[in-house]
Computed example of a mutant assay.
Amino acid sequence: MSSETPVDMPPMRFDTKIAVLLRDDLETWQRLNVTSFLVSGLGPTEPEVIGEPYEDADGTAYLPMFRQPVLVFEGTKEVLKAAHARALARALPRAVFTSDLFGTGNDRDNRAAVRAVGTGELDVVGLAVYGPRNGVDKVVKGARMHP
């Protein structure tokens, strides 16, 4: 067993990136809601993004979380539209949140609201993307880090 503690170990560098892009005209509560919904899809479909379960010094167990940072960006409606198109073109794993979802109250209605609109007409207010660092960087090009 190694005597190294996490503090003594060099920082981990990931070849992949998780990014969330939010439209810059959302209210604070909407930004938080959209972010949580978007990232919830990554773990079940991309299991390598999930780390090991947590445990505190008293042995109390906690759920595992992402193994790497989630970077949150913001951009205009046009930046979101372009990022959505680039994510599709690169076939990167992605989650989408449209403005219509603010008017629904459950998963079934959320999926129906997205299904009712063609890809090019979706009013995207949030997008989560996972993949190789350089590919994700190209998808979020034009966005800025969320303040």
Rank of each mutant, 00 (worst) to 15 (best):
S3F: 10
V7K: 12
P10D: 03
M12V: 15
M12I: 14
D15N: 12
T16S: 14
K17H: 10
L22P: 06
R23Y: 05
T28K: 07
R31N: 05
L32M: 13
N33V: 00
V34H: 04
V34I: 10
S36K: 03
V39L: 12
V39W: 02
V39A: 06
S40L: 09
G41D: 09
G43L: 01
G43A: 15
P47H: 10
V49C: 03
G51E: 08
G51D: 07
P53L: 06
Y54W: 13
A57I: 08
G59S: 06
A61M: 11
A61N: 00
Y62W: 11
L63E: 12
L63M: 09
M65S: 14
M65N: 02
M65Q: 10
L71A: 13
F73N: 10
F73M: 11
E74I: 03
T76A: 06
T76V: 04
E78I: 03
K81T: 12
K81Y: 00
A82W: 00
A83H: 06
A91E: 14
P93L: 07
P93K: 10
T98L: 07
T98F: 06
S99K: 14
L101W: 01
F102R: 05
N106C: 12
R108T: 11
N110A: 15
N110Q: 07
G118F: 02
T119M: 09
D123I: 00
V124H: 03
V124L: 04
G126L: 08
A128M: 03
N134D: 14
V140C: 09
R144A: 11
R144M: 10
